[in-house]
Design a protein around this nucleic acid. Structure first.
Lengths: 206, 206
DNA sequence: CATAGATTGTGAATGATTTCACAAGCACCC
DNA sequence: GGGTGCTTGTGAAATCATTCACAATCTATG
């Protein structure tokens, strides 16, 4: 399979949301144009995005919402649930652990860790905050496949190293640090400060 | 000025972080190559990014960390503080309101709003959660310039419409909804589910 | 003051992504 | 069953972003 652009994958994830909303409304089919309008893009872009993976529509008719939903879920690897650990039970980590939309979308939080004794043992929505001292062993034992990192910047690299050591290949990082990972590991960073600074630039240079 | 790519602005924001770290270490100058290594890019990219805005380095010597920091802060519009309101005092909204890194970087939270009577009146780090009923008037009165939206998906569009009405031109949206704004408004979306789905794709198709 | 060594700034080349534009295919209708 | 109207799938073209490569220019040094 030829390499898929990051931007394409991101859009597929968005299309999936719109398809689910349309399905809830009871719609049966949708055209690339309508999907494009929902997602703020163009119909050609929607068709191109899908064409990397196959042919899902009917000419003259559009796409079956049901079928396209299943196809995109398959493409994105959402056919089965993922087991996720959260490291860091501070404000952000705790908020994420308790975020229901998480689990509803197939991401099952199987463990929350922290190294602060005041947080270890806290109950978060059915889970108990565990001691990060045994992170590697616990991650393996829980068979986690993804990690969310919500620790202070100066601890982030070491925590990432440890979950990588424990066999994790996909990491979502909320810290503001610059993190290095081996090429076999996918790391994505969500940085509120960066986004605010992009907004600041937009306000300043409009 | 010619149009600046979003990716360029994002990198400038990252460079700024590294520059600040280097400055704390007491370094005086830095080369494009070193900055590139920190940011996971190339020296040519660093120079190209800066060249859209002027000439900041000395050939043979690199960049003065002090001067480049000031220049990038100027470019990004961080020379003065921004007044930010947060709408939605749930888990995410509350975590953001209490996030100190926010204010330290020049983003001053001047108001937090919610429509749930159980949350109105709560104290969050020096701020009291206000009733969202008077959002428009309060936003104007507080002279807020940016809004962070952390409300449920079905309320997001209406809240965005209201802050836009109140004169806000920059919005950071944490909801999972698809939001429309007038072309004069900059909207950025942070969607955890989308990021996790990109990770899911990466794990599935590696 | 001339030379050596380093690093910038930037056109040109390459690579990636998006948009265009249109033939092909499907359903519906008469 | 042929015509009409729509919409897909996809090469080709256009646009946008990154990398290359090198002249220009700075400091340090003897």
């Amino acid at each position: 399979m030829k390499r898929i652009a990051d931007s394409t994958v991101r859009r597929l994830s968005l299309y999936l949301r719109f398809l689910e909303a349309f399905e809830r409304e009871g719609r049966a089919t949708i055209s690339s144009g309508e999907l494009a309008t929902s997602g703020g893009t163009t119909s050609a872009q929607v068709r191109k995005d899908l064409s990397s993976f196959g042919s899902f529509g009917k000419r003259g008719m559009g796409y079956s919402i049901r079928e396209l939903t299943v196809a995109i879920r398959e493409i994105l690897g959402l056919a089965h649930d993922w087991r996720v650990v959260i490291v860091g039970a501070g404000k952000i980590g705790a908020a994420l652990a308790q975020y229901a939309g998480f689990r509803d979308r197939g991401f099952h939080v199987v463990g929350v860790f922290d190294s602060d004794p005041r947080r270890i043992g806290l109950a978060l929505d059915g889970l108990t905050v565990a001691d990060a001292a045994t992170l590697e062993a616990d991650v393996r034992q829980l068979q986690a496949e993804m990690a969310v990192i919500a620790v202070p910047a100066d601890a982030a690299q070491s925590v990432v190293d440890r979950v990588v050591m424990a066999g994790i290949h996909a990491i979502l990082d909320f810290s503001t640090a610059s993190i290095a990972v081996p090429p076999t590991v996918t790391l994505r960073t969500m940085n509120v400060a960066v986004e605010l600074e992009i907004l600041s630039f937009a306000l300043t240079n409009r």
